[in-house]
């Protein structure tokens, strides 16, 4: 895959990495996302309620962390991701305030058809220590 701009179908090869997106998640970030998304579940905001939850502490919204994957795919594929993207993910572990997580992925398959290519990708977010917090797959239809 070329760097510095969205890929075309003919410029990709299987194994090409997706751009990494790294973020250290803070409670202030979580609070902002709660306001923006309307998801004010106490497990994200209330330290007392969160302490009694299955997580034992406040955690980031899954979709807030998943947005890092979309950011990576936007950098990799540009408008093709916005127009035709498919994403299937599982939330495997919570992200706690103060944790640094990285979205990464790679192209796992290229299926050429007519004047375009469907790029299949493995995507995910993990901690700096390597624990998976989101795993999944994505596909994008890219014109040649």
């Amino acid at each position: 895959m070329t760097t510095g701009g969205p890929a075309s179908g003919t410029s990709m090869t299987v194994g090409d990495p997706l751009p990494d997106v790294e973020r250290t998640v803070t409670q202030a970030d979580i609070n902002r996302y709660a306001e923006a998304s309307g998801d004010r579940n106490p497990v994200h905001l209330d330290p007392v309620a969160a302490a009694a939850s299955v997580f034992g502490t406040r955690v980031a919204h899954g979709m807030m962390v998943a947005a890092m994957i979309s950011q990576s795919l936007t950098e990799a594929f540009g408008a093709a991701w916005i127009d035709s993207g498919r994403l299937k993910i599982r939330f495997k572990a919570p992200v706690k305030p103060g944790e640094t997580v990285v979205s990464s992925g790679k192209v796992t398959g290229l299926h050429r058809d007519g004047d375009g290519t469907r790029a299949d990708c493995q995507v995910g977010v993990s901690t700096k220590e390597g624990e998976a917090v989101i795993t999944g797959t994505a596909s994008v239809w890219v014109e040649d």
Partner: peptide, 8 residues
């Protein structure tokens, strides 16, 4: 929230 699928 255990999983999510999206199709744009």
């Amino acid at each position: 929230h255990a999983g999510q699928e999206l199709e744009f």
